[in-house]
Amino acid sequence: MAAVLPPQAAPHEFLRARTRWHPLEIVFWLSTLLPFVVVPEYLQLASQIAIAALFAISLDLILGYAGIVSIGHAAYFGLGAYTAGILSKHGIGEPVVLLVLGAIVAGVVGYASSFIIARFRHLALIMITLGICLMFYEAANLAGWLTGGADGLQGIKIGPLAGTFKFDLYGKTAYSYSLIVLFLCFLLARRLTHSPFGLSLRGIRENAVRMPAIGAPSDAHIRKVYTIAAAIAGIAGAVLAQTTSTVSLEVLGFQRSADVLVMLIMGGAGKLYGGILGSIVYMVARDQFSGINPQYWYFWIGLMMVLVVMYLPNGLLGGLEKLTARWRRSPT
């Protein structure tokens, strides 16, 4: 989607060109309203897709842009979910307030752990991120008095959105809410990745040692983006807790970290829309396959993953871009 400019253009010219909205982007965001009309009985699923997409965007910021491999990103998702759930039990029912608090808690913990994250690369990061996530999982399991332990948190009371819209059985409120939050966070992430900060993140991904040499402090940038990503993951978790009124240990589970990674890689890392597209395809496929065959549907998911990685190394979005590029070239 990026317009390629001749290299002599001034850097701010380059950045400005990138921030311009492509017509396809506008079409995409308008089409997210379609489920309300076309498939109103799937709104609950649409809401969970929006949450997964938000979570994938947050992972994309650190993995796709800064090159920080994480298979424990659910730690922050879970923190956000538990924060929203536990506080709602103690009288804070306003969804937006809970959302902010969930983001703050996840962000603070993300900031604290970013000091460790910034010191390592690659394989070591896999172990560290997984380790952090497992620690939170066990802590939540042990603190049964606070989290409800293995049974899940009970007594979550979420007030109506903006004091008017109750979270209904059809998922109308849930989807509207998740979609608005997704869009706002997407705007933030988009602004971020198209800024000089975003560019230096990409520099870190390509060569972390070289960046300080050109005046960009790698460690500080990594800490910053990791904190932001953690806060967004916390928001995603809080939205899930609110729209479903459930929180259980599984929000911190390895499966959730792995799923989001799969969605991001399938959609295409490092492109923001990749995460969104990946979560749409993955969640819809999962829903359809498991509806057709509740016992052995993982086979089809597995097959799909292998095919995508084999034939579309840059994910679905990468494949689409290639296709449109070829189509554009062919008439000439």
Binding site: E41, Y42, Q44, L45, Q48, A150, G152, L169, Y170, G171, L240, T244, S245, T246, V247, S248, L249, E250, V251, Q255, S290, G291, P294, Q295, W297
Partner: peptide
């Protein structure tokens, strides 16, 4: 109508129940 909740996943189970009811 059979639905797979896939392990401990209350958010999925709840969504499946909602979909079973409304869809």
């Amino acid at each position: 109508i059979r639905k797979d909740s896939g392990g401990i996943a209350p958010d999925v189970a709840k969504r499946l129940a909602q979909e079973l009811v409304v869809r």
